[in-house]
Amino acid sequence: MTCTELIEYLSQYIDQELDTELEKAAQEHLASCRNCSVALDTTKKTITLGRLALAKPLAGAKREKLYGRLKQAFEDQTKTGG
């Protein structure tokens, strides 16, 4: 497997979607290629970072404000025959 191919398969490798043969070829490539190992490691870190940073609940104040706004819009809608 070449570096270009490895990068092409990188997400499928991370998501464990490759068939056994391709997965084995990817592992062999990664064992001997520093650049692709770094690409793999930093891509995994990118995913973790995104998930940890973004999968947070809305802050209380914002949540309340949004619900207030929504409730108002909802009441206006139902009044006008929704």
Binding site: T48, L52, A53
Partner: peptide, 24 residues
Amino acid sequence: RFIPSSLIDWRFEPEQLLLEEETH
């Protein structure tokens, strides 16, 4: 195709990085 060009490992783990406002 997109070819990665910045291939230096990161200094810290995501959990550590997230402690800094700058990361966000």
